[in-house]
């Protein structure tokens, strides 16, 4: 299998994630886009791990998974707290950085 396959899949996922990150104003969908960006990096790490024949890339993917879980937990807590405060999950409504 050619490594170009992994590059194409990873770059397209990254493009989709970047598009969502720029265009959408809904915080939850922005988080979805962030997850897609993280996953595009994971795909490339797995591909390179198999290309070079060692497992370090796959171990790094494992760490990325753990950090993504932590990011999702804290990010969602912030979004829920903001929703309670403002009643909205639109990024343009989050203008105040103090309370």
């Amino acid at each position: 299998m050619s490594p170009v396959n992994f590059f194409v899949l990873s770059s397209l996922l990254f493009g989709i994630g970047l598009f969502g990150l720029i265009v959408r104003r809904n915080v939850i969908t922005v988080f979805f886009s962030l997850e897609l960006l993280l996953n595009s990096a994971n795909v490339l790490l797995v591909g390179f791990s198999k290309l070079h024949g060692n497992l370090y890339g796959e171990i790094f993917v494992f760490f990325v998974l753990a950090v993504a879980a932590a990011e999702a937990a804290v990010g969602l807590a912030i979004v829920v707290a903001l929703y309670r405060l403002t009643g909205s999950i639109d990024t343009s409504d989050f203008r105040r950085l103090r309370w």
């Binding site: 990873s10 770059s11 990254f14 989709i16 970047l18 598009f19 720029i22």
Partner: peptide
């Protein structure tokens, strides 16, 4: 967003 996403994809490719 579309232009930026396409450019990034092309660069990565």
């Amino acid at each position: 967003g579309g232009a930026l996403a396409l450019t990034t994809s092309l660069l990565l490719f």
